[in-house]
Amino acid sequence: MIAIEHLSKRFKTAAGKDHLALSDINLELQSGEFVSIIGPSGCGKSTLLYMIGGFVPASDGKILIDGRPVTGPGPDRGPVFQEFALFAWKTVLQNIAYGLRLQGKSKPEAEERARVLLRMVGLERFANFYPKELSGGMKQRVAIARTLAYNPEILLMDEPFGALDAHTRTHLQRDLLRIWEEHRKTVLFVTHSVEEAVYLSDRVIVMAAGPGRIARIIPIELERPRQRSELMFDRRYQEYITEIEGMIDAFEAAAA
């Protein structure tokens, strides 16, 4: 379980002024929950994710994971970034096996598990390719497999499909849901797409900017497993999307 209490983040701007990026964030995430964060740019949604990851320190407040405060990055929280962040000098298989090697697994053992994950993301034929030889969608599949390999309890996904074309994005969303149904990890998913957030999540957190804060939390009560093609004709799905888009427009208009 993730518990966030009175969390805030201040930056010094280039001009030397204090900028309040996040103000008094309070949030609880249950284990195995899929939660999306959505909001206008500048609302601090990625910063929030980086702070949970332990990559960026908090200015005030605290983040507790199963009761223990976050003090830095750790293998219990696996990040997936929009720009993939693969190790370009390692092959696909080595990328996925890297985390396991660090946990002290032998090379054959790590590679065997890496192959299982590679099959799960449908790239077993590309084990010995370098990242530069892959398309964007394939790179992101490798990045997801690399993170799943060291078995984090929490996935922190920062607009993971934002750089992909619409077709590839649809495929990866479906695959992510399939993998999540199977392993039920806690997922925190930052996105710009309302449709994506509603399709994937148990709850959608809508943030507002200036200062960054949680504006609304909307439970998505659609049955699982979800089929995108069926949802398209589901009135509730449409209503969620319309409602959240209206909210974001309103916050943006208020901020402008």
Binding site: G54, G74, R77, P79, F87, T147
Partner: peptide
């Protein structure tokens, strides 16, 4: 060197 590549390694426990 990209910050997020270094973060990815840190998350693995480096």
């Amino acid at each position: 060197v990209s910050q997020i590549v270094v973060w990815s390694a840190a998350a693995m426990g480096m």
